[in-house]
Amino acid sequence: MFLQNKSSDTLIEIEDLEVLFNPLRNEIEGRIQSGEEEQDPQAFAKQDLTFASGENLPRCWLDPDYRKSAA
Rank of each mutant, 00 (worst) to 15 (best):
K46S: 02
G35H: 10
G35V: 14
S8F: 00
Q42F: 08
E27C: 14
D16W: 06
N5A: 09
K68W: 04
N22E: 00
Q42N: 02
P41Q: 00
R67W: 08
W61K: 03
R59C: 15
L24P: 00
S69A: 13
T50H: 05
D65G: 09
L57C: 12
Q39K: 14
A71C: 14
K46A: 04
I12Y: 01
E38G: 01
A70M: 11
N26P: 02
T10E: 15
N56E: 15
L20I: 05
S34T: 13
E15G: 10
M1Q: 12
Q39I: 11
N26K: 15
K6R: 13
S69H: 12
Q47A: 14
R31L: 07
T50K: 02
R67P: 00
G35F: 11
S7M: 12
D40K: 06
T50P: 04
E29Q: 13
L24M: 09
E13R: 12
I14G: 01
S8G: 02
L57V: 11
C60G: 01
I12H: 01
E37M: 08
E15T: 14
S53R: 02
M1V: 15
S69G: 04
Q33L: 12
I32S: 08
P58V: 02
N56I: 10
D65S: 12
L57A: 12
Q39W: 14
I32C: 10
I14F: 01
R31T: 08
G54A: 07
